[in-house]
Each structure stands twice: as C-alpha cells, then as structure tokens.
Amino acid sequence: MPQTKPKISVLVPVYKAEATLDACVKSILAQTFPDFELLLVDDESPDACPALCDAWAQKDPRIRALHPAKTGPGPSGARNAGLDAARGDWITMVDSDDTVAPDLFATLLAGARQSGADLVICNSCRVLPDGTQQPHPVEQTFAADTLLDEEAFWDAFNTPWISQFTGTAHRLYAARLFEGVRYPVGMVHEDYYVLPDLIARCGKVQCLAYTGYYVLQHEGSITATARHEVRLAMTRGDIHRAEYFLSRRWYDRAEGALTDAADFLYRNKAAYDLRKPGHRAEFAAVKAELCRVYGALATQKESKSLGLRAAALRLGLPVFHAYTALLAARR
C-alpha cells in the first residue's frame, strides 16, 4: 500500500549527536500536529548515530533513516539528500542538537495558511548545556506578527532581526521554494548563501512573535570550530546577495552588500592566517569574486563613481578602504 503524502517533511542532518539526538527526536514526535515525516539524515557520523537513526526508524512509521554518501564538510550534503527524499508540501529543518516546542509545527503551518506566505519564521531561543534559557535581546526578536513582501524582507534584513532571518531552522518553507535550489556543498553557513535564492521565489514571508525553537549552545558547533571558514562563507553570502540585488536592479542594496563584504574582508584580514597556502588561495578567490561583482555593478548602473571604487578595490582592500573613507569625509 503506498504511503500517504505527509503535509510536512522534517529534515534533521545527524553528525556526532549521540548525546542530543534522542532529545531532539522526542521533541519532534511530541508535536501536536502529527501529519509529518521525519527524515534523519546520517551525515556519515563516526559514532553511534547511524545506528540510532535506524533504531528510531523502527519505532515510528513516520521516521525514515537516510544514509547518503558524504559529499563534503558541513551539513549541506545531508540537507540536500533530505530535500531529494522529502515528500511533504512543506519543509522544516531541525538541527540534531536542538529541540522544538510541542506546538511548533502547528503554529508555523497556521501562520502560513492565515497569511498565504511561502516562508514562515518564528523566534528562536538559546539554551545552555545545563538547560538554562538565554532568550535573544528583545530588539532581535519579532515582537509582533509581521507580513513582509520581497523588498520589505530585505529592508528588515539589515535590522537587528537579522539573527532570526539567517539560519535554516525555526521556519517553515513551501517545498516548491527548493525546486532547482540546493545548498552549496562544502561551505559552512550554507543557509546564509542560499537565502536570496529562496526569497526570490517567495511571494510573502510571515514573521511570528512566537518562540518555538531552542538552540543548544556548545563548543562543538560549526561556528565555534571553523572561524576562518565561517568568515569567508559569510562574505560569499554577501557577494551572492549582491548579485541577486543586481538581477532586480536594486543598485543601492547591491552596493551596500558589496561594501559590507569589502569592509568585512579588510577588518578581518588578520584572522585568515594568510601564511597558509589554502587560506591564501581561498581569500584571493573571494576577493576576486568581490571585484568581479563590484565591476558588474558599476557597468550595469553606468556609474563612473562606482567604476572608480571598483578600480580601487582591484588595487587592494587597503586602497578601497582609504578611498571610500576619503569620499565619506568629503560629504
């Protein structure tokens, strides 16, 4: 007998999560909205997690354990394997060291149905290993339900709300948003990079003044152990976002994203340890991409002033920084 198509597909990449996976899965199975499938995607975890995934799949028919071949560092390959296997009309993602409130799925789906949004985001809350909750500052959370169109989303993106906008969890995606869109393999902060591709397909984004996702804070997270890779991934995300803005002819937004990327590279250059050949080559590749897109902005806008800034950037980050600082001082 064919399986009934679930309303929601829940994707959980699993890697070195022996201590947290059971709590994560139990919180998902405790949902008040039961019409979902849970895909536990083993990211070739070197511990007992593959067996734990299989054991959970035996306990509940809604759970499937996937064991795809690993395609690179980070969870991108696992997320993509989950997307390929997902059957639901909606997609949500949960990290294997986090937990969710019992009414999370019901609340997110109700928000989508009431607003007509293709993406629904709620607030998250940090949790220490001892269980102590550390809510985000009030200004970084959604204090009221807010419906955003595409342009309003990017206007809000530059506010303190950014801590809720970035990431893959505490949100519900219409499955169609991922048609032709997959996470870049081998890149940390892959969620930041792919965000423009998803927002470009959204009619509306609903932000809920509701907290239903709990993020465990610990030293083993990617952001705590891959500082160099995280910095360059965020810069790549800014450049990709600028290209998306260019495709919409939103020149001021594109310039802002590229200036942020250039300033970030300049201010953090010392953190990249360019004595290492791999770091040096990666840094050079990101800077070259930044120069290419900045030049495209100047050409597309037919702006001489932007052309001069693009030329300064090609000469080097210190030159670009000094030139833009001089222009700002003259205003």
Rank of each mutant, 00 (worst) to 15 (best):
K16T: 11
D43R: 04
G74K: 04
T211S: 12
M93N: 08
A156H: 14
S96C: 12
A328Y: 10
F153P: 09
L232C: 06
A144S: 07
L83K: 00
C49P: 05
H240R: 15
E150H: 12
H228R: 15
P129L: 05
P184T: 04
A144R: 08
A19I: 05
D263E: 13
A284V: 00
T92A: 01
G82S: 05
R62H: 07
D260E: 09
A152L: 02
F105M: 11
I63W: 02
R113W: 05
A296M: 07
K5S: 13
L128G: 03
K70V: 12
Q217W: 11
T225P: 11
L148R: 01
V120T: 10
I239G: 10
P184V: 08
I222W: 13
E150K: 03
T32K: 10
M93V: 12
F264H: 11
K276L: 12
I63Y: 06
D95M: 05
L148S: 00
A169V: 11
L83I: 03
P137Q: 07
R249P: 03
I222F: 15
V188M: 12
A78P: 04
A69I: 12
L29F: 10
A261H: 04
D98T: 09
P277H: 13
S303P: 05
Q217L: 15
S303M: 01
G220T: 10
T211D: 06
S27R: 06
L313V: 08
L11S: 02
S115Q: 02
A284L: 00
G88S: 01
A271P: 03
T223C: 12
A262R: 02
L52T: 03
D42V: 08
Y193D: 12
R331Q: 13
V205Y: 02
P13N: 08
S76L: 00
L148N: 02
K276H: 15
V25Q: 09
A23N: 09
V41Y: 07
I121N: 03
A51G: 10
L246N: 10
T324H: 04
L216F: 09
R62Y: 08
D273G: 12
L315H: 14
I8S: 01
A23I: 01
T159V: 04
G88L: 00
I222R: 06
V319P: 02
A298E: 03
I28K: 06
A296F: 01
R87S: 10
Y210C: 00
P75W: 10
L147F: 10
F36M: 06
A296W: 06
C125M: 13
D103G: 04
L40W: 08
D252T: 14
D103S: 08
W250Q: 13
L327D: 10
Q31P: 09
A144M: 02
A69Q: 13
P50T: 01
Q206D: 08
A30P: 08
D84E: 14
Q114S: 14
Y213A: 07
G131P: 11
Y213H: 15
V94Q: 01
A144D: 06
L177I: 11
D47M: 10
R253D: 15
Y323D: 03
Q206Y: 13
T107S: 06
E150M: 00
G77M: 00
G316M: 03
D47P: 04
G77A: 02
A270C: 06
T168L: 14
C202G: 07
E243V: 04
Y173D: 09
K269L: 11
L21K: 05
Q58N: 11
T166V: 14
